[in-house]
């Protein structure tokens, strides 16, 4: 690791101030992405700004309309939350499948979505459910938050405070995990919501994306066979030692089919 200065501000305003003044300062949430990146010297920072002191960023609130999860809430807390399991079981299941227990004890929803790894799970959950990201400056719909590989709509000094999830009629997330890291080779989140059916895919491309053909077919008939005939083009899909673009395209249909079956099943 290169050297840096460590700060643990007490307020979001103080944290935002450091980010604005110091060009090479970065926020730290659970550190589960940031610290490995620093260890491999893939980043050189002047300041690490720890959000751990801000208790009001931690917690889960459920109402009839939806579930709000604070940015510093860990994956483990979401997975274990009785409120999330009751309102959106698919989201608790998604959180429970991230990495391993020790990673889930530290990693946070705010860190995961701000990082926007192309193979991360939460982006599919947010886009699939039509969630809203609440920041220190505004509210951003999930469809407009994830812009590209490791790229989000966040501006310099803008901090994620929470994510608001509307409660779907039914939903499920299915992922084909990388056997080593558990990141998604392909993950598909399917939800039947008040505003229609949404299908969000992670792991397959450079950034989470929706599949309108599947959404249209599922709107007509919410059944696994509706997506079987829909395949997505391989253009622009990820290709690496784990899976070719063709294989990933194939997995999108398979995982979508399984997700629909799981959504109907429970």
């Amino acid at each position: 690791m290169y050297e840096f200065e460590y700060q643990k501000p007490k307020t979001l305003a103080a944290a935002a101030d450091v980010l604005k003044k110091k060009k090479d300062a970065k926020l730290m949430a659970g550190g589960m992405t940031l610290i490995p990146t620093l260890k491999l010297r893939l980043a050189k920072l002047s300041h690490v700004v720890d959000l751990a002191g801000m208790k009001d960023l931690v917690g889960i609130k459920a109402t009839k309309a939806g579930v709000t999860i604070g940015a510093m809430t860990t994956h483990g807390a979401v997975a274990a939350s009785a409120a999330v399991k009751k309102a959106i079981p698919a989201l608790a299941h998604l959180a429970d499948g991230i990495g391993d227990p020790a990673v889930r004890n530290r990693g946070t929803i705010g860190g995961s979505i701000s990082n926007n790894d192309p193979a991360a799970d939460y982006p599919a959950g947010l886009v699939g459910l039509g969630a809203t990201v609440v920041t220190t400056q505004r509210k951003i719909p999930a469809d407009k938050f994830f812009l590209g590989m490791f790229e989000t709509a966040l501006k310099r000094g803008e901090i994620v405070k929470a994510v608001e999830f509307p409660i779907p009629k039914r939903a499920a997330y299915m992922k084909f995990p990388n056997p080593a890291s558990r990141y998604a080779i392909v993950g598909v989140f399917v939800a039947e919501t008040a505003d229609g059916v949404r299908v969000a895919v992670t792991g397959a491309g450079g950034c989470v994306f929706r599949v309108p053909e599947m959404e249209a077919a599922l709107a007509k008939k919410f059944a696994p066979e509706s997506v079987v005939g829909v395949s997505i083009p391989t253009d622009g899909l990820n290709e690496d030692i784990h899976a070719s673009a063709e294989y990933r395209a194939h997995l999108v249909t398979v995982m979508a089919k399984r997700a629909v079956a799981a959504a109907i099943g429970g």
């Binding site: 460590y6 550190g31 490995p36 690490v48 020790a102």
Partner: peptide, 21 residues
């Protein structure tokens, strides 16, 4: 941060001590 040889408990919860300052 993958092997877990470094796991300790912090306030009673398992954490990878190679991935926390």
């Amino acid at each position: 941060s993958q092997c877990g040889a470094c796991v300790v408990h912090i306030d009673g919860v398992s954490v990878k001590s190679c991935t926390i300052l």
